[in-house]
């Protein structure tokens, strides 16, 4: 184990010696954790967006049954903790014979959770697109589906971008929860190394900084995309 002496013993009164080298030593593992955090977040964002669009369409559809299913989905997943949702999928489902890996369980939970929030955002985006757009599209001969895909949906996404971006930032933060079911992402790395070395201050401090950097980059991407693509009605 690294044994660097703290240059400033006054900072840590209980004789705790700050040892940043523990982070440096395990940097590859940290980076692997960061990579997995990014990976699972990315998939959750993409799949969650699709679910959000589908559920938003269902929520605004004329068919009462679709409307109801979507509404129930959204309300259930927005009003229960993500942690419990993860537990139900990973620990509970095996009880009825569905055993999923930590990765798939975590991904499913994140997708369903962010999907529910996306639904509400996209629904208001849909409502914000002027009625005249659909009329104009149809009068040009486009079918309902074509009009939706080429005219309505792009505008909806652009209007919803700011709020969607916020959901994605939350998603990256929430991805830390999948560590509790053993998925080897950033938080799990910190927890695991902590159990091994007890250098909590350095390890969790380092993990926090990694998240900060990740989120900072994400927010900047979000701002860039917003500036170029988003517009207000």
């Amino acid at each position: 184990m690294g044994l660097g002496k703290s240059p400033n013993p006054i900072l840590f009164p209980m004789g705790y010696q700050l040892d940043p080298s523990i982070v440096i030593k395990h940097l590859p593992l940290f980076l692997k954790g960061v990579f997995l955090t990014v990976e699972i977040s990315f998939f959750a964002i993409v799949i969650g967006l699709s679910i959000g669009i589908l559920a938003a369409v269902a929520r605004t559809s004329k068919f009462k049954i679709l409307n109801l299913i979507s509404a129930v989905y959204v309300e259930v997943f927005r009003n229960t903790p993500l942690l419990i949702q993860i537990f139900i999928i990973f620990f509970g489902l095996p009880g009825i014979g569905i055993k999923l890996s930590p990765y798939i369980s975590g991904l499913t939970a994140l997708v369903l959770y962010v999907g529910a929030y996306n639904t509400e955002v996209i629904r208001s985006g849909l409502e914000a697109v002027p009625r005249g757009q659909m009329e104009a599209a149809k009068s040009l001969g486009l079918t309902g589906v074509q009009a939706f895909l080429y005219i309505i949906l792009p505008q909806t996404v652009r209007i919803s971008l700011p709020a969607l971006g916020n959901n994605w930032v939350s998603l990256v933060k929430n991805s830390s929860l999948v560590s509790v079911i053993g998925m080897v992402e950033l938080t799990w790395v910190a927890l695991d190394l902590n159990a091994l070395t007890f250098r909590s201050f350095e390890l969790f401090g380092a993990a926090t900084i990694f998240y900060l950097i990740l989120i900072f980059i994400l927010i900047n991407i979000q701002n860039f995309v917003e500036r170029r693509f988003a517009y207000k009605t």
Partner: peptide, 22 residues
């Protein structure tokens, strides 16, 4: 710092990490 990091990370830091500061 508090908005852009996961809450459990902040909990871990306070619960496990702060003892280093006494």
């Amino acid at each position: 710092l508090t908005r852009d990091t996961p809450i459990i990370m902040q909990m871990f830091f306070i619960f496990f990490g702060l003892p280093a500061l006494g």
